[in-house]
């Protein structure tokens, strides 16, 4: 398969963006170079977006609704800037949780659009699996982050909320979600199963964060970040886009490791955070 000149250029832009994300992440590991790392990743993000827009200009039919994109980009930048500049530094974890909720929402919606437009009996196994995972993880990240935000902000009680059989029922819901994705592989046209996966994702986000205490929220946010990354990687598999796979995998795994390191630094057991109040000291009761 030979690519046109523009397509080659777009792919090279994506490659450059991927390298910049890796270098940026590396620089973030040292206080001396951290700010340079942010700059590198910002350039990478601009390259990835510019590449996508260029692809839309060059190849007819890829992007036709420019006005929608431009308006959304402008409003989003304005809100993002406002949230970035005017939220007090003491509210950082809340701010990051909220930002995650937006990220999760975006991935989930992209998954729904993919299914709406390309779904049906002819969807390939790879596409339907990737889209299913994407929607489940995106929805989970969306509501899970809103829950984390609510707990930090005090809208929802910061204490772990537990009830009998919690782990069993959550486990059942997770198994059910995976089972439905498995069903979609055999019957890609089963739209009800696809939307059930999305609904279960929304529900799981709430139920999985509910039993975790407010003090553990930073670790939860890292984990949700990891899920958002994996969802982005799944989008990459569905669309055949390598920059999404690379950046999503980077984010997915670094977020996971970071969560583990943070819980260690805070002297919390990572499994406790993962599985909620399961096995926690009975002091809260």
């Amino acid at each position: 398969m030979t690519l046109s000149t523009t397509e080659t250029f777009v792919q090279l832009l994506y490659l450059a963006a991927s390298i910049l994300f890796i270098l940026g992440l590396r620089d973030l590991g040292d206080a001396q170079t951290a700010r340079r790392g942010v700059l590198l990743a910002e350039v990478g993000m601009v390259a990835a977006v510019a590449g996508t827009l260029l692809y839309g200009v060059a190849v007819t039919g890829v992007i036709v609704r420019w006005e929608w994109i431009l308006v959304a980009l402008l409003i989003g930048s304005a809100i993002g800037t406002g949230m970035g500049l005017w939220i007090p530094m003491t509210k950082m974890p809340e701010r990051i949780a909220l930002s995650h909720a937006f990220g999760g929402l975006a991935v989930g919606l992209v998954g729904v659009v993919e299914y709406l437009e390309h779904g049906g009996p002819k969807m390939s196994t790879l596409q339907v699996t990737a889209t299913g995972l994407e929607v489940a993880l995106g929805a989970l990240t969306f509501t899970g982050s809103l829950m984390a935000f609510g707990k930090l902000q005090g809208f929802i009680t910061g204490r772990p909320v537990t009830y009998p059989g919690q782990n069993a029922s959550n486990g059942l819901l997770i198994a059910g979600t995976l089972g439905l994705i498995g069903l979609l592989v055999y019957q890609p046209g089963a739209a009800w199963a696809f939307y059930a996966v999305a609904a279960l994702g929304v529900l799981l986000g709430v139920l999985l964060v509910l039993p975790i205490g407010g003090a553990d929220m930073p670790v939860v946010i890292c984990l949700l970040n990891s899920y958002a990354g994996l969802a982005a990687a799944a989008t990459g598999f569905a669309l055949g886009n390598n920059v999404l796979i690379i950046c999503g995998a980077l984010d997915g795994f670094s977020g996971f490791i970071l969560g583990m390191m943070m819980s260690k630094a805070m002297n919390r057991s990572f499994t406790n955070v993962l599985f909620g109040a399961f096995g926690a000291e009975p002091e809260g009761k």
């Binding site: 992440l25 990743a41 993000m45 990835a48 970040n225 982005a232 984010d251």
Partner: peptide, 11 residues
């Protein structure tokens, strides 16, 4: 930072 780059789903 990892939150910011997870916004790659913008693509």
């Amino acid at each position: 930072f990892t939150n910011a780059i997870s916004g790659i789903s913008l693509v």
